[in-house]
Amino acid sequence: MNKLIATASPHFHRPRTTRSIMLDVIIALIPAVIASVIFFGLRSLLVLVDCVAVCVFSEWGFEKICKKENTIGDLSAVVTGVILALNLPVDVPLWQATLGAVIAIVVIKQLFGGIGQNFANPAATARIVLMTAFSGTMTSWAVPQAFNFLPDATTGATPLALMTKGDLTHLPSYLDMFLGNTGGCLGETSVLALVLGGLYLLFRGVITWHIPVSFIGTVALMSLVCGQDVLAQVLSGGLMIGAFFMATDYSSSPATKWGKIIYGVGCGLITILIRFWGNFPEGVSFALLIMSILTPYIEKLTRSKPLVGEVDES
């Protein structure tokens, strides 16, 4: 008689795995990748391939050196690579993109224990490092040339930079901002593409509405309170990619419902503070980093009370 398998219950499991979640995120990012090629040309694919390849290779290499189990199969390194690429300007030197990818995977993810253990979002933090280290190339924004796949190198300002300078006459139309036909990082300009991807993640249950709604809602409300152009603030910068794809990173954001709302509101407030009063035109990455430091405390505060009922203490 064959030996029977005797494991503890449950003997059924939901089909969803870490890998399938990451695959869903990759699928959700495809519209933004397509938009980046449409507006910034084929070089955006080069940046993307570079970031993904380096992220996957660094993860594999680090785990090899540390004799840890190889986890590239869970596709999380691919997700980090795609999100990092979408957070870079199209003309970024490849060695800088490569450095960013190594920082994201090795320093921010693996040194803290690998998937699920990183306290901060790898892509957002790598972007901050690159921005502070290479502020020249990291803020040189190509002018989008829709459907010109080999565009000439002309640079311009992002809508947020224009608004920070008070130059509203050159501000692109709302429609251009919605479609993504503005200066900015590869994957952050097209609100349409990002919202499509975000809705897919919501539909698949990979993320919940709490963080995107509270994050974007706070930015909109605070723009209104501060007398700014609400629509332009919401449609520009890294808000959409941040709210749907980076703030929802499981390991650096709270898992509780109210925790997510506090986290989203906090991200929105910090974004607004930096946008309106800070030195940088954009503050989404900083907001994410600061709020992820607070995540363990937010979680502790918002942990749901177990259903103990009326316990008779006597």
Partner: peptide
Amino acid sequence: ARPPKTTPCINCGACLTNCPLRL
């Protein structure tokens, strides 16, 4: 019957949002 492979916790919170007793 094949038991699925266990991988590291990704902190998604599915366990706590699906606990009937909110543990």
